[in-house]
Simulated assay, not measured.
Amino acid sequence: MSTALSMKAGPTPRPVAILVGTGLLVATVDAIFASTYWHVAAGVPATRILQGIAAGLLGKAAFQGGEATAWLGAALHYGMAMVMVLVYYLASRWMPVLARRPWVYGPLYGLVVYAVMNGVVLPLSAAGKQPHAVAWVVCSVVVHVLVVGVPSALAARAARGVSVGG
């Protein structure tokens, strides 16, 4: 006899699908945020935002590379988002509380990711010094908390099969 609790709506997604899907979602929402912000604030086209990401590897030459460097920037952006989600998942295997309490540790992870990206990755990249308008910093911190941290934590919980209560 089946009960409502034992019936499933469909097959349970595999952990890899959950993590990849979340990485794609995180990267897409973050790219939309950055492109929209800079288009509204300064009229910067989305292609230039992606070239700015490629500048981390190529320096100022990225802005002369047209669509090719924009595509490189997109690939780098999506790759970094995948790594961010994967890192949280791997950390949750070492510290299971990260998966059990995603609404606590996810936002903290978003803050850590913001700090690492802006305090370590960008300064070590070939992109050069970046201007930091206060509004951009505030919005970026919020986006890292809500768009990177929380989804990474929820994906880790789902990929590990941790129940909401446990």
Results as ranks from 00 to 15, higher is better:
74 A>K: 05
76 L>W: 01
99 A>R: 04
104 V>R: 13
97 V>E: 14
108 L>T: 10
100 R>H: 06
103 W>K: 06
82 M>D: 03
90 L>E: 15
99 A>G: 12
108 L>G: 10
80 M>T: 06
99 A>V: 06
89 Y>G: 05
107 P>D: 11
82 M>E: 03
87 V>P: 00
69 T>C: 09
68 A>P: 03
91 A>E: 14
81 A>W: 00
66 G>L: 09
62 A>D: 06
96 P>D: 15
69 T>Q: 09
65 G>S: 08
77 H>R: 01
92 S>W: 13
72 L>Y: 09
84 M>Q: 07
74 A>R: 08
100 R>V: 07
82 M>V: 02
109 Y>P: 00
82 M>Y: 06
88 Y>F: 15
75 A>P: 02
107 P>W: 10
96 P>F: 14
60 K>L: 11
61 A>M: 05
82 M>F: 07
95 M>E: 15
61 A>F: 04
106 G>C: 09
98 L>C: 04
66 G>F: 08
87 V>W: 05
75 A>H: 03
80 M>D: 03
109 Y>K: 00
79 G>D: 05
100 R>M: 08
108 L>R: 04
107 P>N: 10
75 A>R: 03
89 Y>A: 15
86 L>T: 10
109 Y>A: 01
99 A>E: 05
87 V>N: 01
79 G>Y: 03
68 A>W: 12
67 E>I: 12
70 A>R: 06
70 A>Q: 09
86 L>I: 12
70 A>S: 13
60 K>Y: 08
100 R>K: 11
79 G>C: 05
101 R>Y: 03
71 W>E: 04
92 S>N: 14
104 V>Q: 12
78 Y>D: 01
61 A>G: 08
105 Y>M: 06
74 A>N: 10
85 V>E: 01
60 K>E: 13
90 L>V: 15
103 W>C: 07
75 A>T: 08
68 A>R: 14
80 M>N: 04
80 M>L: 11
91 A>M: 15
67 E>G: 05
102 P>T: 10
62 A>K: 04
63 F>W: 06
82 M>W: 04
92 S>L: 14
100 R>C: 05
102 P>Q: 08
72 L>V: 13
66 G>M: 11
75 A>F: 09
86 L>K: 06
82 M>L: 10
99 A>M: 05
74 A>L: 13
95 M>I: 15
95 M>Q: 15
69 T>F: 12
98 L>A: 04
98 L>K: 00
75 A>C: 07
64 Q>Y: 00
102 P>R: 07
65 G>A: 09
101 R>S: 01
89 Y>Q: 12
67 E>A: 13
107 P>F: 10
77 H>P: 02
85 V>N: 01
67 E>Q: 11
68 A>Y: 10
101 R>I: 00
70 A>K: 03
100 R>I: 07
84 M>L: 09
97 V>A: 15
82 M>I: 02
79 G>Q: 07
62 A>M: 07
71 W>F: 10
85 V>C: 10
95 M>W: 15
108 L>Q: 05
101 R>M: 03
70 A>M: 11
81 A>H: 00
70 A>H: 09
105 Y>C: 06
108 L>N: 08
76 L>G: 01
109 Y>E: 02
86 L>Y: 04
65 G>T: 04
82 M>S: 02
92 S>A: 15
72 L>G: 04
106 G>W: 00
101 R>L: 04
108 L>W: 07
86 L>R: 02
65 G>P: 02
85 V>K: 00
91 A>Y: 13
76 L>E: 02
87 V>G: 06
88 Y>D: 02
88 Y>E: 03
67 E>D: 12
